[in-house]
């Protein structure tokens, strides 16, 4: 149990550092900014208490915000994404229950499940994020384009990260 908590905390620190040190400096045509750090919320165990889910998402977003001078924007997006997670989980539930001991990864749940799970939640994160940043609907379609492109790259990174850390079942 302690091990699990520690692992999640370390993952959070690593993802935040990776996000602000590497990904925020990636320049792809001025349109794309991938947000891999949402992986932390995706990978929280199934039986995480709901209040802890929201609270950790809040601090995850806030710590990224502090490094990007965009106080509140990532926080709001992360909290919204965490709010959506229980609903999404029950929406795409497969026949096998979300038991204790298995985690929301490609390894335990399969590629198809993880793909739809992460795609819906990345949408729930990117849409509020980009619209809060622009803070108006004046550039609506331009913002949609940026959201779409960033979602593609974020998803790509999420799936790659799954295969990098893939350990076959014993």
């Amino acid at each position: 149990m302690i091990n699990l908590v520690l692992r999640n905390i370390l993952r959070m620190i690593f993802l935040v550092i990776f996000q602000v040190a590497v990904l925020n400096n990636v320049q792809l045509g001025g349109y794309i900014n991938p947000y891999l750090y949402v992986l932390f919320i995706l990978l929280l165990p199934f039986d995480t208490p709901k209040w802890l889910l929201l609270l950790s998402a809040f601090f995850l977003g806030l710590s990224v915000d502090l490094f990007t001078d965009t106080i509140g924007i990532n926080t709001a997006a992360c909290v919204f994404m965490a709010f959506c997670r229980p609903g999404v989980l029950s929406l795409i539930a497969t026949k096998q229950e979300y038991e204790q001991g298995i985690s929301p990864t490609v390894r335990d749940m399969g590629f198809k499940w993880f793909f739809s799970y992460s795609l819906i939640l990345v949408f729930a994160h990117h849409i509020p994020l980009f619209f809060l940043e622009v803070f108006s609907f004046r550039e609506f379609f331009h913002t949609l384009l940026r959201i779409g492109l960033s979602i593609v790259v974020t998803m790509f990174l999420l799936l790659i990260s799954q295969f990098i850390t893939y350990r076959p079942k014993k």
Binding site: K50, W51, L54, L55, F58, G61, D65, I71, G72, I73, T75, A76, V79, F80, A82, F83, L132, F135
Partner: peptide, 13 residues
Amino acid sequence: LFLIMEVIAIIMV
């Protein structure tokens, strides 16, 4: 709880 946190975040924005 979600509502409270979201409101805090928006206020910060």
